[in-house]
Structures are given as structure tokens and as C-alpha cells.
Design a protein around this nucleic acid. Sequence first.
DNA 1: ATGTGC
Length: 482
Amino acid sequence: MSIKDNIKKVRDNVYEVPGSVNKKMRASGRLYLDDESFEALEDGAIDQIVNIACLPGVHRYAIGLPDIHFGYGFPIGGVAAFNEKNGIVSPGGVGFDINCGVRLIKTNLKQADIEDKLDELIEALFKNIPSGVGSKGKIKLKENEIDDVLNFGAEWAVENGYGWKEDLEVLEENGRIKEADSAKVSDKAKRRGIPQLGSLGSGNHFLEIQVVDEIYNDEVAGVYGLEKGMVVIMIHSGSRGCGHQVCSDYLRVMDKAYKNHQIDLADRQLACAPFDSREAQDYLKAMYAAANYAWANRQMMTHWIRETFEDILGKSAKDMEMDIVYDVAHNIAKQETHKFKGNDIKLVVHRKGATRAFGPGSEEIPEKYREVGQPVLIPGTMGTASYVLHGTQTAMEETFGSTAHGAGRVLSRSQAKKDYKPEEIKNTLAANGVKIRATTENVIAEEAPGAYKDVDSVVKISDSTGIAKLVAKVKPLAVTKG
DNA sequence: ATGTGC
């Protein structure tokens, strides 16, 4: 008997986990999957959806997105919203890499403009943007400056010469959540954050030079400033050791808190506290601070990417129109107001491996994108395509304005190393015309595309269910890996 | 993801 026997299909590519599977459930679950990925999904990830649906104040349903897979407490590729009145906040619902996210930068260059400079460009990017496990940034942050980074995020970066003032307009939250409070971040997290600011990280984090390969929606692509054949740059990076430490610190706090507040948990990894408790409020302020760190981090890398293109191509970044298209968070919880049965409900929306996909008219998105919905950036795996989608009204109604964030892992790192040889992967990439520069051979095997679910199908399910709609496909020309 | 184990 599998938990899947209890699940019924609601409509094409949407499954429901009934609230009756377990007596403790306070809501039902929803899974956005096609039949094939539903069959392939591990029961453990569905168990996690059931566990979340048992948490206090869970609103409507616990959601599994097309890239759902088993994670720490909460699945990755999931959304859960908890009512501020009687609900909880949980670090496991955000994950370790707070504000791991994606930024897309456009140019006015065509592939032909950079073709003979591509080797030089990727080599210089690899050199100018520190990457790898434990990598350190190249700036020397003063002890007291880390508080400004945590409290002001990308604003701090721009004020300190990293990038343009107008960059801030096209970042989720304008690159700074004002409720952040560095006083709630431990000294240990700050100590880890200080040397790492302005670095890419490792694993599936990357920096890619890409070309727009296909346009699915001319109108929206036009609004986002994208056209076929355009060279773009994508950054996939997070809050490094700083966010990791904030998560670890508050998991410990919450492990005590849930007992003190007498919250019944199906899994200790769901450790949480009531929204209005001191523990939850402290976590939110610290988590927002780590999110700000990640926005500052991507902002600094943006600056060095522009400098690198200027150096190699001999034109100014302004002349190359290296504007940011958008920047999205993939791991974050936010206080948001959502409509339900005609009422405004205040929720803490936990997105773990999920992209905000606010639809047309949302005041939270830049004015220039408001008529078409926000850009949704979904990275592929090494050497494969990435996608730009737009947020929709359907997402607002069904998924708290959220959609998938990428290709979920299907092989563990160790398994990937057994199954793939770095040399093979490099040859395959080369055959597809993709250049790669990585810190280690190891990471190339660990990040083999075969170790991940196909991003194309993830995006297709998002598009067909309407929780985000396709705008453009971009394909890599060259990639750097940490 | 991560000073890739406390």
C-alpha cells in the first residue's frame, strides 16, 4: 500500500492529497505533476506534504510543485502558507541556502559579437568572480560593515559602488527586506559571511553566458527586453555560509520552541514556532537579513560581470545595455496578503525551491512589468537550457503566486560521481558548443545533467497548469562552476 | 546548499 493510492487527480497535471489521509491533517495537499513524474515521485516527498498539512494554521493546502523532491522536513519544490493569526514559521520551510536565487542580465550583443572572445570572457569571469567551496570574496569588509550588508542588502552594494541605482528597481523586494535585523544574526553567521561576500559558491550554483534561443511570447518578451539571439548572463547563487549558519542557529532555537509551545509535529525537522512568538519573529528578522546578504552578493557579482565584459569587449556596460531583467529568490518565507473567498488573509508564505510568480497587477512587482506579471527565472542544469516565464492570475489563485524553481536532483552527489566521468560530461558539453570552467573535476560529475530531472518537463507542467507561462528559452554558451 | 560530519 502506497500513499499514492489515496491520491486523486483533480485535473490535468494536478493531483490532490485528501485531508483525510491522516487524522491530524488540517488541510489537503496539491501536487503539480504530470503522470510520469507522479509515478516517479518518491513516497517520502508526499509524506512530507502530508506532514506540512498537519501544521498549525496551514492555509488551504500544502503544495508540491513540478520539481518536488524529498528535503529536510519540507520537500524542495514546495510552498506552504501559514495564517499569521494561528500559524507557525519554520526554518525547514525555507531551507539552508536562504535566498538562493537567480538573476538575469541582458545585453544588446548578439552571439556573433562575442564568439571569438568567449574563451577569454569565461576565463576572466572565472577569475573575477570567486567561486568554490569555502571561497572568499575579493573585498575586505570591515567588521561593522556586515551589519549594513545584512540590513540594507543590494542597497548597500549600490551605495558602495557595485552597480547602478536603477538595478534596485528590478530585484524582488528591491533587493532589501526592510524588516531584516542584523542584531538577530549570530556572530558566527556574521564571521562566516564577512569573507565570503561577493562569491558564487559551489554545487549547482553557476554563472552562465547564454543566448536567447526561443521566444514563446513576443509581447511579454518585449516588455522584459528580451529578443531571440540576444546574449544574456545568468547568476545562480545564494547567501553562502552566512545563510547556512542562520538556518542552523534557528533550527536549534525552534527545536526548543516547538516543545515549549506544545506543537505536535510528525517530524522533528519541521521544528517551528507560532508566528507571534519571540522565536518566530527573531528567525524572520535573521532570515530576512540573510536574504539581504544574498541580494548584496548577486549585486556585487553583477558589477564584476559588467567590468569583465567592459575589459574584454572594450565597450562600456551602459553601451552594451547590460541591464538587469530581474532577480528572484528561490528559498525564502515572506509575509504576504492573499485573497481567499473575497477576504484578504495575512500569511507567511514559505517557498522552498519555489519561485514567486506574481501575476499582472501585483503592486509588489516593478511598474514596467506590472501589466504582464513578474519575470520568473528557472535555471536548468549545467549545459542545459534555462527558462524565463511570467507570473499569472492562476498562480495567485492556486499556489500563493508561486511556481517551480528548476530541475530537482534525482541522483545524490555520491551516486552522480559513480555514474558519470567528468571527461565524458566535458566532451558532451563541448559537442554542444558549451564551454565550461570549474574549480574541480568533481563538481562536473556531481552536477552532471543526468543527475537532475529534466527542466524542460518541469517548465512544461508549470506552463500547462498555468501557474506560470512560458516567455523565453535561453541556452548556455559558457558556464563557470564553483 | 554547506568550513560536503558534531
